[in-house]
Design a protein around this nucleic acid. Sequence first.
DNA 1: TTAATTGTTCACAAAATTATGAACTATTAA
DNA 2: TTAATAGTTCATAATTTTGTGAACAATTAA
Lengths: 109, 109
Amino acid sequence: MDSKYIYKLHAEVCKALANPVRVQVVEILSGGELCFSDILEQTGGLKSALSQNLSQMVSAGVLNVRKDSRCNYYSLSSDKVYQACQLMREVLVDNLERQNTVLLKMKAE
Amino acid sequence: MDSKYIYKLHAEVCKALANPVRVQVVEILSGGELCFSDILEQTGGLKSALSQNLSQMVSAGVLNVRKDSRCNYYSLSSDKVYQACQLMREVLVDNLERQNTVLLKMKAE
DNA sequence: TTAATTGTTCACAAAATTATGAACTATTAA
DNA sequence: TTAATAGTTCATAATTTTGTGAACAATTAA
């Protein structure tokens, strides 16, 4: 049992969320599946870059694709992905609140 | 409200889990705080690399440090960090199971 | 058949992460 | 004071990730 290898695989799944566009994609898709061009409309940027990000997320197993003749529909592979993403957002919010508290204390001195 | 900036901050927190050693650190610390050298004993590798990883995790707000005169104790800043990490691990396990199912079906043919 | 539409793929450049080891700081023990 | 312990910081090299645009499929519409 090579736990180093497991940590590597685990980190690869986590990397799927370690980019601003990919975080945004998770949030966009939390409302249900959407096709490539609808996602692109919300994220902006080059279509090639988005295509690469989406295929990376599919490889990591956080997204599924459904290819229809006219569109490629992407969706979250599991609600766990959204839940994990939201927990990380809560950690961020907690951090910002803590920083703000410190700031207010400094100003009050 | 610059949502791009929020996604960037959100991704920075996620990046704290996007590395095998850092994933391992989250799991090691889920049992409670430990000092640097105890963590190093479990992760292996160079102390300079671990020190940099830990300080990155502190900056991202996923870890806290408590500096005692003889040791630096690290701990998870919140149980949310561990929960998110476990969710990602479940996504990995689900992926591996799905792949295994496909493999078994291929062999059965 | 020709032209649009909807993406994907590829190659290369640019930027960000990670690894490595030496040097350094701070505290404690001899 | 000197040596040992515990860890951080820094510079540089190696590796990964990301950005960019052109070229390339596949399907649909004219």
